[in-house]
């Protein structure tokens, strides 16, 4: 069963820029893959289509057994709750503690606060930041902030974990740590798709690599 499948997907933005052209690929449930290509190759657009931050101009995107074209706007929140996303720019909120940042998805989904606290601590301990839960993320390093973002993405145990350039601002050693963290989640069954242009790191990791160029899929489909 495919966790994600793209069938002849194209995305043309207003103004005529083709971000994706006829992309076909599928990612099996429990698989881990890298999505690579130069900047502007369409990696972010591909992730946005999965997140329903954008709609395709043509073709079909399936996540699990759900055809995304059939999801109305008001169903998007429930779709996103099944997915965990790690952003390059972290998207953390600096008006609250590390704990509250990680707890946000659980709070939104309506978890019992006691249960939520337990899950937040489990996620923070997995990324090694349990002792910093009461700090403001602004006081932490870039690597630590990225790990908070990862904790937030996995705190609700999503079926699918997406990451957009998760190592973009990190030094090589930290980058490798972060990638290994993703491998750990994949080992317990989470489907993982990571957009990255760090080719040497990707090669060392040795997972399936999907390469985009100018919006077209050139290898790994």
């Amino acid at each position: 069963m495919a966790a994600i499948s793209f069938t002849n997907v194209s995305k043309r933005y207003e103004g005529g820029h083709d971000a994706l052209v006829g992309v076909d690929f599928s990612l099996q449930s429990g698989e881990m893959a890298f999505l690579t290509g130069h900047s502007g190759a369409g990696k972010s657009t591909l992730l946005k289509l999965i997140m329903l931050m954008e709609r395709p101009s043509r073709g079909q995107v399936m996540v699990g057994d759900q055809d995304l074209a059939q999801l109305q706007r008001n169903m998007i929140p429930w779709h996103r709750r099944r997915i965990g996303v790690v952003f390059q720019n972290h998207q953390l909120l600096f008006d609250r503690t590390v704990f509250d940042n990680v707890a946000l998805p659980l709070q939104i989904s309506g978890y019992d606060p006691v249960d939520a606290a337990r899950r937040v601590r489990a996620a923070l301990s997995k990324v090694g930041l349990l002792e910093k839960e009461q700090q403001n993320p602004i006081s932490l390093s870039s690597g630590e902030q990225q790990r908070i973002g990862i904790a937030r993405a996995i705190v609700h145990k999503p079926q699918l974990l997406l990451a957009d350039e998760p190592t973009g601002n990190l030094d090589p050693a930290l980058s490798e740590d972060v990638m290994h963290l993703f491998e750990q989640f994949n080992r317990v069954g989470t489907t993982v798709l990571i957009a990255s242009h760090d080719l040497s790191l990707i090669n060392r990791m040795g997972h399936r690599t999907i390469t985009l160029s100018g919006g077209r899929l050139v290898s790994g489909g």
């Binding site: 966790a3 099944r82 989904s109 309506g110 978890y111 606060p113 079926q159 069954g189 489907t191």
Partner: peptide, 24 residues
């Protein structure tokens, strides 16, 4: 080991949802 644990593992009970909703 390598089997995805999907929505089953983290379904939120209706009572929790209601309580969480009023708490919110």
């Amino acid at each position: 080991q390598n089997i995805p644990r999907g929505a089953v593992a983290h379904r939120v009970k209706f009572g929790d949802k209601l309580r969480s909703w009023s708490n919110h």
